[in-house]
Design a protein around this nucleic acid. Structure first.
Lengths: 210, 210
DNA sequence: AGCTTATTTGAGTGATCACTCAAGTGTGAT
DNA sequence: ATCACACTTGAGTGATCACTCAAATAAGCT
């Protein structure tokens, strides 16, 4: 038979990620993966060793993309706090096939996997911890910019924020009514924005420190 | 072979619920169910028709138990608001094999199932809606007792509360550090309690309306 | 052009899946 | 005691699972 051209690892991982994110680890079969990656079993196993290894590679890819995206937001945002609030609003605005309408892949993995999937669970937790660290950095940045009171605790705020963002994505996935989702997202976004000290006070404090 | 004594439907459903809740729909095999229910395939199928039908029966049992438990809380609580806050604190206090440390079964189901599992998803959403209705009733009760301002919106508060309770249970399952979980639970519980109007104002308002 | 190596294929492996059904056994009625 | 019916069993069904490997083909080197 005519041999296919060599596979594109990045494209294969994207396809695998999308499939696992949609169907979960246990409900995704090799048959599904063959179709999505356009590779035959021999090739899949040559390239990725096992279904589990492929899942872990996809998970890492998800984590890196999310972390990088968050860092870009952090670098580009005039107001980190507003950026964080807007991330929540974006969840409510998304359409059904938007990744924002899906639960966080790391959370989905932890809810989905069983005690037989220790390695997968361990990596998911580790990536969740690292994502929390990224949120901490964003809250620290907000604090350093005078957007938060000096006694604000970025670690606590980040933990709360990550939990609530995650909940919001799950609500989006569970397809509660659109209006309800908007209301919930707005509540949570405003809660983030209400953390700030008022702009006048922030400017005065900034002037004093320079 | 010697025939087993007839199965106990309630006990079977409890065992099935526990197993599906632990392992999820797709990762639970008939072999697992045989062991957990102490029934052979022929009996399982005679009693429950299919794996999916058994899952749906277990889901309904979960929903009924949760709803009844919430209603009991509503009936017995002097302060519905405090009861709601304490539900959150209980999540942080639980040990690892406590059902409170597991994600809500309805949420887990919706995160876990695929597009091939429409019926399961539909029932889960319906039960989630009904649970939300129960939370609405509790917030309405709190309002009628003067625990909430007259302009408080029980529908919005219930939606927010359900989402956050759900998130908290997922955090408990994901095994973030215990201290972090306590802090998060306390944050959320206090947020609920901060909804109240002050007791003095509540008493005055109660006197005026009688 | 020929050869070696790398990569892909896809039929096939052994195991497991959800589910079936003929046979065996317990129960209740007569 | 006998019989009919209800209920359980567990070997077996057809399908699918994750994964393998001998064979075929493309690519690169000489």
């Amino acid at each position: 038979m005519k041999r296919a051209r060599p596979y594109d690892r990045e494209a294969a991982l994207d396809a695998a990620l999308n499939l696992f994110w949609t169907r979960g680890y246990h409900a995704t079969s090799l048959k599904d993966l063959e179709a999505a990656l356009d590779m035959k079993p021999g090739s899949i196993y040559a390239a990725f060793s096992s279904k589990e290894a492929l899942y872990l590679a996809a998970l890492e890819r998800y984590f890196r993309q999310n972390r990088d995206s968050l860092r870009t937001i952090g670098e580009e945002a005039g107001s980190p706090l507003k950026a964080l609030a807007d991330l929540m609003r974006n969840v409510a605005r998304c359409s059904n096939d938007d990744p924002n309408c899906r639960p966080c892949m790391l959370i989905k993995t932890l809810v989905d996997v069983t005690t037989d999937d220790d390695e997968i669970a361990r990596y998911s937790r580790q990536y969740l911890d690292e994502m929390r660290g990224e949120f901490v950095s964003l809250f620290e940045l907000a604090k350093s910019k005078g957007e938060l009171p000096p006694d604000a605790d970025p670690v606590r705020l980040a933990r709360r924020y990550q939990s609530e963002l995650s909940a919001l994505k799950i609500e989006a996935h569970c397809a509660i009514d659109r209006e309800g989702l908007f209301a919930l997202a707005e509540d949570l976004a405003q809660q983030v924005e209400q953390l700030r000290v008022s702009p006048g006070k922030a400017k005065k404090r900034a002037k004093r420190s320079s």
